Simulated assay, not measured.
Amino acid sequence: MQFTKKVCVIGAGAAGLVAAKHAIREGHEVDIFEQTDQVGGTWVYSEETGCHSSMYKVMKTNLPKEAMLFQDVPFHEDLPSFMSHESVLEYLIEYSNDLPIKFNTTVTNVTTIKNSVVTDSFYNVVFVCNGHFFEPLNPYDSSKFKGRILHSHDYREAEDFKDKNVVIVGAGPSGIDITLQVAQTAKKVTLISKKAAYPVLPKTVVQVATHVKEVDETGVVTVEGDHFEADAIIVCTGYVFKFPFLDSSLIQLKHNELMVSPLYQHLCHVDHPTSLFFVGLPLGTITFPLFEVQVKYALSLIAGKGKLPSDATIHNFEDARLHGLQNPAAFHTMVEDQWEYMAELAEMGGFEPWEYMETIRKLYAYIMTERRKNVIGYKLVNFELSKDEKEFKVVDFASQ
């Protein structure tokens, strides 16, 4: 017989919503604490800068709706495959209907008492779902640059850089999105990153495949000593993790705050593997479906049905993963590892893997290939699934 638990969910973004939804289905008492006045987390756009939002004004998803849905909750059929951030937010708002959310409520402290995790009120279980796209990683924050320097966290629209000479540092998803937008208004864009080797970019964009050594008063200096002058610099170097409500005795941030420790399977606290969970830490993944798999595994552990390995294996998880990585800062980065990871969680949790996940895997592989070949146009398509949803095809080109 499963006993009802009191469950605290911190954050009403996608991870928090799916955690709450499934915990309620399992019969638990759930409270969701959200520090802002609405659901959506990173999908909430704000014209303000320096706030929780990292969303820019015009943004299409990097994954299509066919690959970023919660199980049994499809996006509206009339939406294009690559959606606007407004459409994703509407999806999350609909998904959150009837959930017990306490808005404008900030969790300031989480402690443990007799092996139970608590906030101001007593809870048996805590799901930490506060996101990781709100604390910028900016190696050049203290530079003496005389122009405008900002992190992608505070980028909102291309018009702000009209007729400017702009240097963009970093060519990940945000770096490329911002490059393509700013190239429409700026006089010149210089994209600097080891990943800056795209075969097709606008004529106003110069790619420099290297690292930035420093930012000086007038621009940037590469590791080779080349200098690029700029009126503005946009730093697209990602984000660090931050948990202001957790004491360092409970959680430590390692490798430039890019690794959350000590966790088993990027999810369970090693000392509280059935009561303290961190949903949504993995990077380079399909996000929403992966969050749901993590939550299902966590709930299986809460119910006493899921499997955990020996304490030694749990505590050795981090060392084993670090041993196979060249860069420890990539501890939570999965990409191709995500499929095996989700299958493993499903097996240990004793629940059937989502059959449609194989279609998502195929879509993901197709999109990653197309993105490398044509980063400008890969989002300008729509997909159609076969009747059994095991295959897909490109059916038309979406409007820009």
Rank of each mutant, 00 (worst) to 15 (best):
A158S: 14
H323P: 03
A183E: 09
E370C: 12
S142V: 10
E389V: 11
I251A: 05
T36H: 12
S116D: 12
K5E: 05
K5P: 00
F3P: 12
Y341M: 03
D141T: 14
N115W: 03
S152G: 03
A14G: 09
L180R: 06
I367S: 05
K203M: 15
D396E: 12
V88W: 01
G40D: 02
Q184H: 12
H211S: 15
N130T: 11
K60F: 00
H76W: 01
N115I: 07
V39G: 06
V200G: 06
Y45E: 05
E292R: 10
Y56T: 00
A183W: 04
V126L: 08
K195V: 02
V73L: 10
E344N: 15
T210G: 03
A230F: 04
A171P: 01
S84W: 05
K213T: 00
E358I: 12
E347C: 05
A346N: 06
S399K: 08
Q326R: 13
A330C: 11
L92I: 09
L246P: 15
S121V: 10
A183N: 09
F331L: 12
F161H: 04
T4V: 12
L180W: 04
T274S: 07
H315E: 03
T218C: 08
L283A: 04
E66M: 02
M348C: 13
I168K: 00
Q265F: 12
Q181K: 15
F383Y: 13
L246I: 10
L299K: 05
K102S: 15
V44W: 09
P199G: 06
L325M: 07
K379N: 06
G172N: 02
S53T: 03
N382G: 05
K65N: 03
V182M: 08
T105N: 15
S46D: 05
I234T: 11
S399D: 04
I113L: 15
T36E: 13
V260P: 05
M368G: 10
G131F: 06
E358P: 15
T49D: 07
I176D: 04
V7E: 13
T333W: 01
A398Y: 00
A298N: 09
V381P: 08
D216H: 14
D98P: 11
P100T: 06
V293H: 03
D247R: 08
K144T: 15
K6I: 04
H323N: 06
F241T: 07
M342S: 15
L137P: 01
F288L: 00
M68C: 02
V117N: 07
S386G: 13
H266E: 07
K362M: 15
V167W: 00
N109T: 14
L283M: 11
E347W: 09
I149H: 09
K213C: 13
D163C: 06
D31L: 09
M334L: 14
T36I: 09
S261Y: 10
E159H: 06
D78L: 07
A23I: 14
V205A: 09
E135H: 12
T274H: 05
Q294K: 00
T237P: 08
W43E: 00
A330F: 08
K393V: 11
F70K: 00
P328F: 01
R361I: 13
D311Y: 04
D231T: 06
E224G: 08
H315V: 00
E229G: 14
D31I: 07
D78S: 13
E391T: 11
T61W: 08
A320W: 02
A196M: 05
L283K: 06
M1P: 14
V223W: 09
A330S: 13
